[in-house]
Design a binder for these strands. Structure first.
Length: 567
RNA sequence: GCGCCUGUAGCUCAGGGGAUAGAGCACCUGCCUUCUAAGCAGGGAGUCGCAGGUUCGAUUCCUGCCAGGCGCGCCA
């Protein structure tokens, strides 16, 4: 597994270091006050005429010392040493930006890195040593996955892949809520459907799961077993329906996620924790630490000590002294940390945001540091068709399921659309747009760039082009068109982008990057004919096209969308 | 009442203390006898919800307000 800092990262760091040295030199000479300390952040300016890299550090310093940014920038430049660097020229621009113009040597180096690393290009070691457990989807095993689950699945899977690419060790985990009274209700609901399927006039239990899928399950049980299940003893029968329903629905969810191209590393059962007695242990630990008290016959946790807005019941006052759901969840998160992960990320739905504080409080109560748990809330999804809001499925009474969504628009469009928006924004998912097989659908824009490149190589082969490819075979100086330089810069930025985006937990920015990359390629394709008369130029452009294709493929892999060879 | 999310172009949304606020779709004008036109080039289109504050500079940060969405159990 190859990992190294990106070429772009090295260049930025080199320039930042030189700027830092210039600042301290200016301080030594008394041109800038001594006590200043500042971080030099290198960015990519919005327009090519503003250089390859820029920093606003002079303006930041200017604020500190009440001097205008441009004159501070002038001071920095006077002390700046750019010997043995790719920097050709430094400009002061606007309110005091330092704009750096570089020769193309760093791009050549960056491109050969892409060539060498291929499918693993983008990998860095920024997050080496991080052991992250990323829990997402974790839908209740009481029904089909819904569209918010699909959104969380897209976000979680992409985030996990990006964190891995940035050097972290990541485990994708699905928590199965296979204990608690909802599972009893599920079993009873199935039993009622089974009896109804046998012709009995049998009512659904209170709070029953009313979906069609339980009727289907019941029907297949009748076909398989006839009325024989009614002969079982009460306990045995109850247990059978419960575990049968759980197993079937879980299998179904697994199948849906598999169709989505998502594989979890672990499926963690709540029941297994409960069987180990982990629940009682959590309550006991909190009691020993003096963080619990009794009131109204219940046991409470002083979560307000840890920033929660009210204390929470741990053990109910009912006759069975049942634990509330916070207890198994605390036991579960404690277990995650005991498995050696140093950081936990949960992706939860919008209905759980009120739950975050008490969970964090509980973990702190158990003695874990603040911040080991990070919770990302994925917001609601509304399905629309053009202007019309889609609420119900054709079958009536149920919200449209993830299966139905995938059937309608396919995995590629679904994942792309979910990742286009920032996770915390409310999403209107336009089914009509997503299923369109045309240029109106943004997913094709990126895929098309990949397919177009594949097509160039097919054509090259057909035409019998003889070309030697690779960084040592081509004349890099032939790639000097503005569109070629722009394309190379985006390609060079990929590893840093992956790291920055993973760190910010904003996978939607990867979509933006891919759109920009596709745009840069399409512009290059239009301006620069790849397969031309000049063999040296053809070889150089084929090389660049190949590199663009590598990055497109790597980025598409990160979001779990296919990279077609033709469209 | 409290908490969370959102308010940016006709629509769906990015962005973010600074340099002329962006994309996709829609609309208008050009571009296919040559590597896929699912493309490219260009154009019109915005008081960045409203009002204050901090700042040399706010669409971005802070406060208040308005609007929309979601949540607030000894349910999970």
């Amino acid at each position: 597994m190859q990992s190294s800092p990106s070429v772009l990262g090295e260049v930025k760091k080199d320039i930042a270091t030189r700027v830092m040295r210039a600042i301290s030199k200016a301080q030594d000479r008394g041109d800038l006050p001594k006590e200043l300390s500042v971080e030099v952040k290198m960015e990519t300016p919005p327009r090519p005429e503003q250089g390859d890299f820029a920093t606003g550090v002079a303006m930041v310093l200017g604020r500190e010392i009440k001097t205008d940014g441009r004159s501070v920038a002038g001071t920095i430049i006077r002390h700046l040493n750019i010997d043995d660097s790719p920097v050709l020229r430094v400009d002061i621009a606007g309110p005091g930006f330092l704009n750096f113009f570089l020769d193309a040597s760093w791009l050549e180096k960056a491109m050969s890195r892409v060539w060498a690393e291929g499918p693993s290009y983008g990998r860095t070691d920024y997050l080496n040593g991080e052991k992250i457990l990323l829990e997402f989807v974790s839908a209740n095993p009481t029904g089909p996955l819904n569209v918010v689950n699909a959104r969380a699945a897209a976000v979680g899977d992409c985030l996990a892949s990006m964190l891995e690419m940035a050097g972290a060790q990541v485990s994708r985990e699905f928590y199965i809520n296979d204990a608690g009274n909802q599972t009893d209700v599920l079993g009873d609901s199935l039993e009622a459907r089974y009896r109804q399927a046998l012709g009995q006039d049998f009512p659904l239990p209170e709070n029953a799961y009313k979906g069609e899928y339980l009727k289907d399950l019941a029907q297949s049980l009748v076909v398989e077993k006839g009325p024989s299940l009614l002969d079982l003893a009460d306990d045995e029968r109850h247990e059978f329906f419960k575990s049968y329903a759980l197993q079937k629905i879980l299998d179904w969810q697994k199948k849906t996620l598999q169709d989505y191209g998502l594989t979890f590393d672990t499926w963690f059962s709540e029941k297994s924790l409960r069987d180990m007695g982990a629940h009682n242990l959590v309550v006991e630990l909190l009691r020993i630490k003096g963080l619990t008290y009794e009131k109204d016959g219940a046991i409470w946790f002083k979560s307000t000590d840890f920033g929660d807005d009210k204390d929470r019941v741990l053990v109910k006052s009912d006759e069975h002294a049942t634990a509330t759901y916070i207890v198994p969840d605390l036991a579960y998160h404690k277990n995650k940390l005991e498995r050696g992960f140093n950081h936990l990320i949960d992706i939860l739905g919008p209905d759980h945001h009120g739950y975050v504080n008490r969970l964090a409080a509980g973990l702190m109560g158990l003695g874990y540091p603040k911040g080991v748990l990070e919770v990302l809330i994925v917001q609601v999804v509304r399905l629309v068709k053009g202007k019309e809001l889609v609420k119900m499925s054709k079958r009536g009474g149920e919200f449209i399921s993830m299966d139905e969504l995938l059937e309608e628009v396919g995995k590629d469009a679904a994942r792309f659309f979910f990742l286009m928006r920032s996770p915390e924004s409310h999403l209107d998912f336009d089914i009509d747009l997503a299923r369109l097989q045309s240029n109106e659908n943004p997913v094709f824009y990126v895929q098309y760039a990949h397919a177009r490149i594949a097509s160039i190589f097919r054509q090259a082969k057909e035409d019998g082009f003889k070309f030697a490819m690779g960084p040592n075979e081509i004349d890099f100086s032939l790639l000097r068109d503005a569109s070629e330089l722009a394309l190379m810069k985006i390609i060079a930025a990929f590893p840093e982008e992956v790291y920055e985006i993973a760190k910010a937990r904003e996978p939607n920015r990867l979509i933006k990057f891919m759109m920009d990359l596709a745009t840069a390629f399409h512009a290059f394709y239009t301006r620069c004919r790849v397969l031309g008369e000049d063999p040296a130029l053809t070889a150089a452009r084929l090389y660049l096209a190949k590199l663009a294709q590598i990055v497109l493929a790597n980025a598409l892999r990160l979001i779990g969308v296919s990279a077609p060879e033709s469209m």
